[in-house]
């Protein structure tokens, strides 16, 4: 059981540091979503089932979807909107 806790903690640290230190925004968002999942598992391990539920729904589900949506709007540059296909990000 102590091994389980240590692995969980190390994963959490790696994900948290990784999520804030990426140059690539998309990678950062994916790391953030996975960090939400690991935080939820940690809450479940601590016996807080309701907190874990909220963390999954809000931290991993809704916030991740909203971040990805925002990224989509950022990549669609304002000046080029409606002027044919924007292929700069491909």
């Amino acid at each position: 059981m102590i091994v389980f806790d240590v692995v969980l903690m190390v994963t959490l640290w790696v994900l948290a540091v990784g999520a804030v230190s990426q140059a690539d925004l998309f990678k950062s968002v994916v790391l953030f979503v996975t960090m939400g999942v690991v935080v939820a598992v940690a809450w479940a391990r601590l016996g807080a089932a309701d907190l874990a539920m909220v963390e999954v729904a809000v931290g991993a589900g809704i916030t991740g979807a909203l971040f990805l949506n925002t990224l989509g709007h950022l990549e669609q540059r304002p000046g080029e909107r409606g002027e044919g296909e924007d292929t700069s990000h491909l």
Partner: peptide, 11 residues
């Protein structure tokens, strides 16, 4: 599936 659908919808 929510985040995957958001990802696909974005691209």
């Amino acid at each position: 599936a929510v985040t995957v659908v958001a990802f696909v919808e974005r691209t």
